[in-house]
């Protein structure tokens, strides 16, 4: 297996000419979980969208490398095929589009895309089989959406999971089931995780190797697991 590594160097991102991300750098290695914590409006979602290559998020400077390949200017679907998987805070609902459609659209030559046992995945993620056969996210509760997204992560496989506020809409039990499944992928398959969150709640379940404080478009402080709980007590204005 090729060496797994994500390197982002001095990333600058603008929306409509306004710079939101101002020199973001990170290095994530195989099997590492990084947490990015920051106040509302610090541009965390912009960061995740830019890494995924979303339209309208212009990378004006810097470089993103995944496993040694420069992906800075690749279109979104090629980044996804390269192994990046984003779970948005509010996943879209797609009327009349099914999980099978996504599976059929995957390239055959992909090296890491796995074919797992659907039934087993459903039970480990705690999702009803009937939901998995419905149109994507249509009529799902907030928690069901996140479980369904996690199901896709496990079914499609990925090298890097970008989790944008994974805990929003999830109750404690759901959070635990979803986090455990992701942790298992980290441990068994070397999945890299960047978890963006407000709260330490998620990080009790999905234990990070590194916690970064992200403010005004860049990382201002990094530390271990303890930093998350410190931030919870003291707030970001320290």
């Amino acid at each position: 297996m090729a060496k797994r590594e994500l390197i982002i160097e001095d990333l600058h991102v603008s929306i409509d000419g306004k710079e939101i991300v101002k020199g973001f750098s990170i290095e994530v290695k195989s099997g590492e979980v990084h947490a990015i914590m920051g106040p509302n409006g610090s541009g965390k979602t912009t960061l995740a969208s830019a890494i995924m290559g979303k339209g309208g998020y212009e990378i004006t400077k810097g470089k993103i490398t995944l496993d040694g390949q420069d992906i800075t200017h690749l279109p979104t679907y090629q980044r996804a095929r390269g192994g990046i998987f984003l779970i948005s805070q509010l996943p879209s609902e797609l009327g009349g589009v099914y999980l099978d459609d996504i599976r059929r659209a995957q390239p055959h030559e992909s090296e890491y895309r796995v074919e797992r046992d659907l039934e087993r995945e459903l039970s480990s993620i705690g999702l009803d089989k009937e939901l998995a056969g419905r149109a994507i996210n249509v009529g799902f509760s907030g928690g069901e959406k996140k479980r369904f997204e996690t199901l896709q992560l496990s079914l499609l496989g990925a090298k890097l999971a970008l989790l944008d506020e994974l805990d929003s809409g999830l109750d404690i039990d759901a959070l635990r089931e979803v986090s455990r499944r992701i942790s298992r992928m980290v441990k068994e398959e070397g999945l890299m995780v960047i978890a963006i969150t407000h709260y330490s709640r998620l990080l009790k379940e999905l234990v990070p190797d590194v916690v970064h404080v992200y403010e005004k478009g860049r990382i201002t402080e990094s530390g271990n697991f303890e930093l998350a709980f410190e931030l919870e007590k003291t707030g970001y204005q320290r």
Binding site: A80, G96, I102, Q152
Partner: peptide
């Protein structure tokens, strides 16, 4: 964006969305 971020190429994504709409 959702479908593209799942590795579906833009033409296919567009097709799936329109067919899904109907």
């Amino acid at each position: 964006f959702y479908l593209e971020s799942r590795g579906v190429d833009p033409d296919e994504a567009r097709r799936l969305i329109i067919e899904g709409f109907f």
